[in-house]
Nucleic acid binder design. Structure first.
Lengths: 255, 255
DNA sequence: CCTCATATG
DNA sequence: CATAAGAGG
């Protein structure tokens, strides 16, 4: 059971760079994409269907903005599009697929880098999201939260922690939020498997050759319900995929 | 004395495709450019200056839209930017350089293809322009009107006259306007030199390989005051220049 | 430094 | 089918 999360920075752009060939090779059972940036016309998902995937989409109301999609080879027993809160659902930020013994919550958390109001919006979302997940825990066992969190927790999760103490994505408030979320009963699959390994990032700015110099952040995560933790057989990054400014992040669960 | 008119469809784009190398080779004395599409930052004309040109610009008020520029190796004795009518000058459509024994009126006439209101605007412009030129005739002898006229006169000026009887750029009204303008005392340099030659166009849509199939229109013209007609030594198109959806059009005047 | 929508041609 | 600005990241 391989689950991959990947912020594609525009699904059509990623497709034009050979995303489907990469999907065929990587062969995830469940593929969570973020920032699909769907337009006004319906997205063409036939390429995924040809590879045996069912497609579930949650685009933003605004064309070309945000949006998540989950592709799955397993048939879900339930699909929940959105979270029921309009200001988030209009931005296409959550999509849940329930399977027999686990659920995959695909999420694209807001970025706070453009304007202070968006950082405030993000903080609001983080509080909402934690409460939302706590509620899910009661009814949806075996949650796997996968997506672009647009934040990280520890100094080793970004190239230059010192210079970014107050940068959106690494503020004390966000770091504390991340720790609290984990304390609610989740395992960061990457850290579980790689311990305190450094230099593993999932996003690099396009500017000034940051990716070639590995000046990045670990913003994309797969948080696994701690009850599922014993089933984690592998986890990591797939930095050879170059369709985006992010790289894919994966986890494998045994039976 | 070589005068070239060229709709560059974005000066920065054309420069990135080697416009300056082409200018060095073509070596015009006066170069009229249209659709420079200047942005908010001042255009970098140093490359033209390095080739010995003086630069005169008339950008539109709206960044990235319309605008004309004239580059000259001869020092003009007068330069007139715009025509004095705000609704045209805000779109950067005329720029006149007076030399000792002739003047070059660089013009980018409105396109009418986007919306009916723009075709109406264009018709208004055409009437204005003819009156404007009639006034100039009294005070500015030896006028050379060069630019993208966005219209043509005769069946042989476009690939498919039959199908375009009512297309903007070839409506009966525009064709009559063109004939009237010539009757005011101007010689179409291209026709003067090439008679009724067919298949010579100066614009091809980017769509569906129109240029390769030579499915085009002759929209760019050099109209020479009939008093200067005896001085025309050469005229024609330069379709090997491929920086734009238009090609350059030239005329040479002897002493 | 990218992708995308929109305006304009 | 292109250019360009502008939003968003």
């Amino acid at each position: 059971m391989k689950i991959i999360t990947y912020n594609v920075n525009g699904l059509r752009s990623a497709l034009s760079k050979g995303l489907l060939d990469w999907v065929r090779e990587a062969d995830p059972d469940v593929l969570c994409l973020q920032e699909i940036k769907a337009g006004t016309a319906p997205l063409d998902v036939s390429g995924f269907e040809a590879l045996g995937y069912q497609a579930y989409l949650h685009p933003a109301a605004k064309p070309g903005y945000s949006g998540v999609a989950t592709f799955t080879k397993l048939t879900p027993k339930a699909v929940v599009v959105g979270c029921g809160t309009e200001c988030y659902d209009s931005e296409g930020r959550v999509l849940r697929l329930d399977f027999d013994d686990f659920s995959v919550l695909n999420t694209y958390m807001p970025s706070g880098t453009s304007r202070p109001e968006r950082q405030a919006f993000k903080i609001g979302w983080l509080h909402f999201f934690r409460a939302y997940v706590r509620e899910l825990q009661a009814t949806v066992p075996g949650l796997v939260i996968g997506g672009d969190f647009n934040c990280c927790q520890r100094d080793i999760d970004l190239h230059n922690a010192k210079a970014n103490q107050n940068s959106p994505g690494f503020t004390p408030e966000e770091r504390a939020w991340f720790a609290d979320l984990l304390a609610d009963g989740y395992t960061d699959a990457f850290r579980h498997h790689h311990g305190d390994a450094v230099g593993h990032y999932s996003w690099w700015t396009f500017r000034s050759g940051a990716r070639a110099r590995n000046v990045g952040w670990r913003l994309d995560h797969l948080l696994v319900d701690s009850g599922l933790q014993p089933r984690i057989t592998a986890a990591g990054h797939l930095p050879d995929a170059v369709h985006s400014d992010h790289c894919p992040v994966f986890v494998e669960l045994g039976e």
